[in-house]
Amino acid sequence: MEEQVREDVRQWLEKVVIGLNLCPFAAKPFAERRVRIHVSAATDEEALLNDLQSELERLSDTPVAELETTVIAIPHLLENFDDYNQFLDLVDLWLEQFGWEGELQVASFHPDYQFAETEPDDAGNLTNRSPWPLLHLIREESLEAVLAHFPDVDQIPEHNIARMKALSDEDKQRLFPYLFG
């Protein structure tokens, strides 16, 4: 199962995140194999926090030339989006408690992702819908460097929502088989 989860995430990154240019900064590190996909075996929150800590340490301790970012896939836990969302509060506390604030941050993706004040079937939610619950560990220094040279960074979410709304039903089925298959 681990290899299938890793492949699902890799294909999502390639076809959706990079293929639709949802994150204009993802293509280069992905092509350079500096994106780590870790499949967590955790079946409870404590084990997942231990995995998170290990991956934060690995990312912090590895030169950016070797590892830019890490995606933790969570196939055995947090299937319910509300549970996942509540777990993100623990992640924020974890980052603060262990001094990762200002160095690393965590972005969130989930098969049932729903932005506040949207309907579940709102096309904009697709921007953060992944095949598995994910925690994306990001180096703040790298993010700041890229954002400094990217025009209209504030427009990225609006452009992404417009891309999702423009997808045909066939495109959605092809890109999100775990949602529309």
Results as ranks from 00 to 15, higher is better:
E2L: 10
Q4K: 12
Q4S: 08
E7N: 12
D8C: 05
R10P: 05
W12F: 09
W12K: 02
L13R: 08
L13D: 00
E14Q: 12
K15G: 02
V16A: 02
V16L: 06
I18T: 01
I18V: 10
I18L: 04
G19W: 03
G19A: 04
N21S: 01
L22S: 09
C23H: 07
P24R: 11
P24W: 13
F25E: 00
F25T: 00
A26D: 10
K28C: 09
K28F: 15
K28R: 15
P29V: 10
F30C: 13
E32I: 15
E32V: 12
E32R: 15
R33C: 12
R36H: 09
I37W: 01
A42C: 15
A42L: 07
T43H: 09
T43L: 07
D44I: 02
L48A: 01
D51P: 13
L52V: 14
E55R: 14
E55H: 12
E57F: 12
R58P: 04
L59M: 15
S60F: 08
S60N: 07
D61P: 07
T62W: 02
T62R: 01
A65M: 09
T69C: 03
I72W: 00
I72S: 01
A73Q: 02
I74C: 03
P75K: 04
P75I: 02
P75E: 02
H76L: 09
H76R: 05
L78S: 00
N80C: 09
N80S: 11
F81K: 04
F81E: 04
F81A: 05
F81L: 06
D82C: 08
N85K: 06
Q86Y: 07
L88G: 03
L90R: 11
V91H: 06
V91K: 03
D92K: 14
L93W: 06
W94M: 10
W94T: 07
E96M: 11
Q97I: 06
Q97W: 07
Q97M: 08
G99I: 04
W100Y: 15
E101F: 03
E101Y: 04
E103P: 03
L104Y: 01
L104E: 02
L104H: 00
Q105I: 07
V106D: 09
S108E: 12
S108V: 08
F109K: 01
F109C: 04
H110W: 04
H110P: 01
P111I: 13
D112G: 13
A116D: 08
T118M: 02
D121Q: 15
D122T: 10
A123M: 08
G124A: 15
G124S: 15
N125F: 01
L126W: 00
L126H: 00
L126F: 02
T127Q: 00
T127W: 00
T127G: 01
N128K: 10
S130Q: 06
P131Y: 07
P131K: 04
P133I: 08
L134G: 02
L135H: 01
I138D: 04
R139C: 02
E140K: 07
E141Y: 05
L143H: 02
E144Y: 15
A145I: 03
V146N: 10
L147N: 14
A148Q: 14
P151Y: 12
P151E: 14
V153W: 13
D154H: 14
H159R: 15
H159M: 14
N160P: 00
N160Q: 03
N160D: 03
N160S: 04
R163Q: 12
K165F: 05
K165I: 05
A166K: 13
S168C: 09
S168V: 09
L175F: 08
F176C: 07
P177W: 09
Y178C: 11
F180I: 09
